[in-house]
Design a protein around this nucleic acid. Structure first.
Length: 437
RNA sequence: GUGAUCGUAGCUCAAUUGGUUAGAGCGUCGGACUGUGGCUCCGAAGGCUGUGGGUUCAAGUCCCAUCGGUCACCCCA
């Protein structure tokens, strides 16, 4: 083995890739039902895009970005998250001219230079939505509801939803001052790290695991209590909508998302089936972000779901059991004479939407059967010189070993019937219908 | 960026106090009388023991470095 995938990256092999596809299909389906449309943005952006939006002092910008210079001397950065690029595109394409709100979803890889850990990779996948243009608390609730409903739809049951409000430009500075003052008064009771946090990022003081720090912070002022009238009303509305919808949540005043652009509502969903990195989805409102990119004052809200973390959580809850990946028909060819007929048959089967394959390894008939067994085909069709002569082929049910003879001419129709598939003609649809059989 | 722990065939693991051609199970491939799988039996392929130094008569086994995995911290999906 000469090469391995770079540190913190991994190959997604078929078994897992299949589950990811399933999760993505379900997400796209539900996002669409909620009115979201797909958008695909570049995997890298001008570094400035992330500096501006995520915030200079955040960990992401400070130590986690994959930044490089291209041959033209531009500073580019592999996207560490999905919101900033989408907002950049919103402004870039004057989407404020579209009917508001603009609701978009994306899926794809993100990149962060960190030490790998359970549930954390340098290249990781997210599925996210952004609703841009509305400050209605109902859309905050809708976003949260969508995330929760999605998790439920893929079989997750044990979830905890945390919500918080980060306030806005009006009330946050006032609160931060109060918090700093409080921390300053208790400086000597805090650990070394926390003493540094007082100036760097006082909101993080709440995260410390040190018992002494937690004791101090227990009585610290909480942002929730210092929201201004408007933010408070907004937050209460969100809660009210969630209550009405029967969504359980825990208000977590210390929930501070590590990106500077959040305002008002923030939220996060954690699963007990993961390790230390237990957040499978998180998001919040960002009412200043569009302006930051040079657009008109425009509110927005969104969330992102971590695909691999979700996949692990779903697997541990045993919800992947029903994915059927069996092939339909194996065409066994006893002798070379029938091979070209078999290849034609294969084409016909595939055109009819019947998944099928044959042997390309020069195996004996017995070997072909073994292969068909291991790959898990539902049926095996025998097509040799004997069948060529009689015009009847043998169809074997690989589970029950039952065999029946079917005229070669009727085989495709017969198999479609047995497999419960619509006929070849019925399944052919015009382009662009987006309908899957 | 910090810490802990690990690194032998595709996978899971063996290899007496350092001592001759590094083993097993599973998997892969082939075979067990001529056109049929799942069980059983037989056989084959597949490892410069992560890499590079060092100690020693001798290293998979000891030491150092490096790379990588795993887990945790920081922080996040």
């Amino acid at each position: 083995m000469q090469f391995k995938a770079p540190k913190g990256t991994t190959d997604i092999l078929p078994d897992v890739a299949r589950r990811w596809q399933y999760l993505e299909h379900k997400a796209i389906e539900l996002f669409s039902i909620y009115g979201y449309e797909p958008i695909v943005t570049p995997m890298f952006e001008h570094t400035e895009v992330f500096l501006r939006s995520i915030g200079i002092s955040t960990d992401i910008v400070q130590k986690e970005m994959y930044t490089f210079a291209d041959k033209g001397g531009r500073s580019l950065t592999l996207r560490p998250e999905g919101t900033a690029p989408v907002i950049r595109a919103y402004v870039d394409h004057n989407m404020n001219q579209l009917p508001q709100p603009v609701k978009l979803y994306y899926t794809g890889p993100m990149f962060r230079y960190e030490r790998p850990q359970a549930g954390r990779y340098r290249q990781f996948w997210q599925m996210g939505i952004e609703a841009i243009g509305s400050d209605d608390p109902a859309i905050d609730a809708e976003a949260i509801l969508l995330m929760i409903n999605y998790f439920k739809s893929v079989g997750l049951k044990e979830l905890t939803l945390y919500i918080n409000s980060m306030g806005c430009d009006e009330d946050r500075p006032v609160y931060i001052r109060l918090l700093k003052d409080y921390a300053e008064e208790n400086r000597e009771k805090l650990c070394r790290d926390c003493q540094k946090r007082i100036d760097l990022n006082p909101l993080r003081l709440f995260d410390c695991k040190e018992e002494s720090c937690q004791l101090v912070m227990k009585d610290a002022p909480k942002i929730i209590d210092y929201l201004d009238k408007e933010c408070k009303a907004h937050f209460n509305k969100v809660r009210q909508y969630l209550d009405t919808q029967g969504i359980a949540y825990i208000i977590k005043p210390e929930l501070v998302r590590g990106l500077d652009y959040y305002t008002k509502t923030t939220f996060e969903v954690v699963s007990p089936f993961l390790g230390a990195q237990n957040a499978i989805g998180g998001g919040g409102r960002y009412n200043k972000l569009v302006e930051e990119f040079g657009g008109p004052p425009t509110p927005g809200i969104g969330f992102a779901i971590g695909t691999e973390r979700l996949s692990i959580a779903v697997e541990r809850e045993g919800a992947f059991l029903s994915i059927d990946n069996k092939m339909d028909v194996f065409v066994a060819v006893p002798d070379e004479a029938a091979r070209s007929t078999a290849i034609n048959l294969l084409s016909a089967l595939r055109e009819a939407g019947i998944s099928s394959d044959l042997d390309y390894m020069g195996r004996s008939l017995k070997g072909q059967l073994k292969y068909a067994d291991k790959r898990g085909f539902k049926y095996t069709v025998f097509l040799g010189s004997r069948e060529l002569e009689s015009g009847e082929v043998v169809v074997k049910n690989m589970e029950t070993s039952e065999q029946l003879e079917v005229p070669l001419k009727e085989l495709v129709d017969k198999l479609s019937e047995i497999l419960g598939r619509p006929g070849a003609v019925a399944r052919v649809k015009g382009p662009g219908t987006g309908v899957q059989g």
